[in-house]
Simulated scan of single mutants.
Amino acid sequence: MRILHTSDWHLGRSFHGAGLLAAQGHFIDRLIETVLEHRVDLVLISGDVYDRALPNVDAVALFDTALGRLRAAGAAVVATSGNHDSALRLGFGSSLMEAAGVFLRTRIEDLDVPAVFAADGFELLVYGLPYLEPRMVAEALGVTEPGHPPVIRAALERVRADWAERRAAADRPVHAIVMAHVFAAGGEPAESERALSIGGLDIVPVPYFTDFDYAALGHLHGRQKLADNVRYSGSPIPYSFSEAGHTKGALLLEFDADGLGEVQPIDWPAAKPLAVLRGHLEELLADPDLAPAEAAWCQITLTDTDRPAAAIERLRTRFPDTLALNFEPEGRAEPQHASYGERLAAAATPLQVCAGFVDHVRQRPADAAETALLERVLADATAAAVTR
């Protein structure tokens, strides 16, 4: 049996103001190609199907189309809700969808109700844990300790009890996959993930999952192996510039009567690459080695000593999809006064106040022409005040 582990689709998300619907449609196409090429039997989506609790209509339509295409390609689907999803909305119609081979696990009441798949010589159970917000589920799970580990531990105890009962009643091997949307210990986060809590109360120990045949984790956007049978598939496309070096895609699992076999990474090249550039403006505009970045979404950090005028406009003449611009001047002396308020208090003349403001906002001193303009404006303002 072949299972494709995916997570964190975040349908409906934007990227620094740029719409991602086309890029997400591109990854859906790659997903369907993978299912057909590898004859995938089951696709897992480990949370964060949508990017927000109230997804826009285009995102809902894309997910609807994806489910239809997956079923037409011969793959069943198990999806859980993540911290970005509305569990109630994502789970609408779940009882009807099961008849069509789409299993939505979004309710705490169903966390120990597996999707059951009969295979050649064995049975596979897929348990889908929805995102478990401790404050909302602690009472139902009988948990009094704070944080995510206690609620995950309690949920997995229910899962193990059901698994044990089914194994005892079966006449063939019964294997289990558990899906969970968590921050597991040892995982490397990216900038695009929403923190689950603060103070380390969100970190779930990896040994919680190692007795299952496989743990299909979601939430962290980088593909990661925490144990042979505990992995993050990562998001299918990048959602922050911190993911510029990630390889995106999914994980293909082979299961047989002996349990988990090979785990194969499946790579899906992004429809539009990311580029993170750093340097002086003129060097970036002239460097021939940066030609590939001309077709990428770019984050650029300028290191010019003084902030160049019209920097974003000039950069976009070569890198039209520059979405983020930062300034980190190199070689510029630190101002004598640490804060703008202190600098303002130390100014002796109106011209120094205005010139200091220009320096503070632009991160470069006013040039001769700008200083002359400020002098004229101040002189006119003073003359107008005297005549009143």
Results as ranks from 00 to 15, higher is better:
Trp9Met: 08
Trp9Asn: 02
His10Asn: 07
His10Leu: 06
His16Ala: 07
Gly17Thr: 10
Ala22Phe: 00
His26Gly: 03
Ile28Gly: 03
Ile32Trp: 08
Leu36Tyr: 00
His38Arg: 15
Val43Leu: 14
Val49Leu: 07
Ala53Glu: 14
Leu54His: 06
Pro55Asp: 11
Asn56Gln: 10
Ala59Tyr: 00
Val60Tyr: 00
Phe63Tyr: 15
Phe63Ser: 03
Thr65Trp: 13
Thr65Cys: 01
Gly82Met: 05
Asp85Asn: 09
Leu88His: 12
Arg89Tyr: 04
Gly91Cys: 09
Ser95Cys: 00
Met97Glu: 09
Glu98Asn: 12
Glu109Ile: 00
Leu111Ser: 10
Phe117Cys: 00
Asp120Phe: 05
Phe122Tyr: 14
Leu124His: 09
Tyr127Thr: 08
Glu139Phe: 03
Val143Asn: 12
Thr144Asp: 06
His148Asp: 01
Glu157Gln: 14
Arg158Gln: 10
Arg166Thr: 05
Ala170Cys: 12
Arg172Leu: 14
Glu193Leu: 10
Glu193Trp: 02
Ile198Arg: 14
Asp202Pro: 02
Tyr208Glu: 15
Asp213Arg: 07
Gly218Pro: 03
Leu220Asn: 05
Ser233Asp: 05
Thr247Ala: 15
Leu252Glu: 02
Leu260Thr: 04
Pro273Ser: 12
Ala275Lys: 10
Gly279Gln: 10
Leu281His: 04
Leu285Gly: 11
Glu294Ser: 10
Glu294Thr: 15
Glu294Cys: 15
Asp304Asn: 14
Ala310Ser: 13
Arg314Tyr: 01
Arg316Met: 12
Ala324Cys: 08
Ala324Met: 11
Leu325Tyr: 09
Ala333Cys: 02
Tyr340Asn: 02
Tyr340Glu: 08
Gly341Thr: 12
Gly341Met: 05
Arg343Ser: 15
Leu351Arg: 06
Asp359Pro: 01
Asp359Met: 00
His360Leu: 06
Arg362Phe: 12
Ala372Leu: 11
Glu375Trp: 02
Ala385Val: 11
Val386Lys: 14
Thr387Trp: 01
